[in-house]
């Protein structure tokens, strides 16, 4: 029975149990990464007798960590900024003209594209992108921005419908152009949605595996997940080094999450229920 005055022991017990399941793989990863192969052979889950921090710098060197990190950051940063700036604009134009046939169809066109599975685009896309010399990081950024349109327009339009038109109309009477209205009034008004779109784009670009896998040929441009995949063989039987590199690949996102978790959770929720 729901009782607002007493804590619910059943719920707490359940959540603690669930927390154990979430944390266990992480705990194991940390334990494995801190041991040397001999001790790992004896015990996987126990606390290390001696901590081998050296696994981390070794893994960093083996996986070209700083390089991959820079690539991931470069791709994610540009994907997020360009997505917010361009997709919001497209959505604005559509939202304010939904009564016109062209914009309405445009909206449905973008929406329908959401259901096209990536595998069908994958094979021809790779050839097309390399043909125009864009099978690289820059091409990847363009794809994130362009493919993001489908979902983001949907999210932005939902939000823009709730933004009253009066402000724009007043500005229009004052002689402001559409561009100035958008950048001066509407874009700042969409702040919360921009945050949502930005967070989702960041999570996508940072963690994505399949698109970089098929697009990037030059190992200098590999992102963190792709580097993990490409260098799986490198660790051979040295699991400690492998896990050190796994943890380092996850760490940037975990730090960002710990700092900005409230934003991220709100952002993701907003994006999905709008």
């Amino acid at each position: 029975m729901r009782n607002r005055n007493h804590r619910n022991p059943l719920a707490i017990g359940f959540l603690v149990l669930g927390a154990f399941f979430i944390l266990f793989p992480m705990y194991m990863a940390i334990m494995v990464s801190l041991k040397n192969p001999q001790e790992l052979g004896q015990s996987i889950l126990g606390w290390p007798r001696r901590i081998f921090w050296s696994n981390f710098p070794q893994a960093m060197a083996a996986t070209h960590y700083t390089h991959a990190f820079e690539n991931s950051l470069f791709i994610t940063a540009f994907a997020v900024i360009l997505t917010i700036l361009t997709n919001s604009m497209v959505a604005y134009a559509i939202a304010r003209n939904m009564h016109r046939r062209f914009f309405k169809y445009l909206y449905y066109y973008f929406f329908a594209a959401m259901f096209v599975p990536f595998p069908i685009i994958m094979l021809p896309l790779v050839r097309q992108m390399s043909h125009i010399g864009l099978a690289d990081r820059v091409g990847l950024i363009i794809l994130y921005v362009v493919y993001g349109i489908s979902f983001n327009v949907f999210v932005y339009v939902g939000y823009l419908r709730s933004v009253p038109m009066e402000l724009e109309e007043a500005a229009l009477v004052d002689g402001a152009g559409r561009w100035r209205i958008f950048w001066g009034i509407i874009f700042p008004l969409m702040g919360p949605m921009n945050a949502t779109v930005g967070i989702l784009a960041a999570l996508w670009a940072w963690n994505d595996f399949l698109l970089p896998l098929v697009m990037l040929g030059n190992p200098n441009q590999f992102t963190l997940p792709l580097m993990q995949y490409a260098l799986q063989g490198q660790y051979s039987t040295n699991y400690s080094e492998a896990f050190a590199s796994y943890l380092m690949a996850l760490l940037p996102m975990i730090i960002v999450y710990v700092v900005a978790q409230k934003w991220i959770i709100n952002g993701v929720t907003q994006g999905s229920i709008k």
Binding site: L123, V126, R127, G217
Partner: peptide, 8 residues
């Protein structure tokens, strides 16, 4: 094979 498809 993917590299060949990409011309790289």
């Amino acid at each position: 094979q993917a590299d060949v498809a990409k011309g790289q």
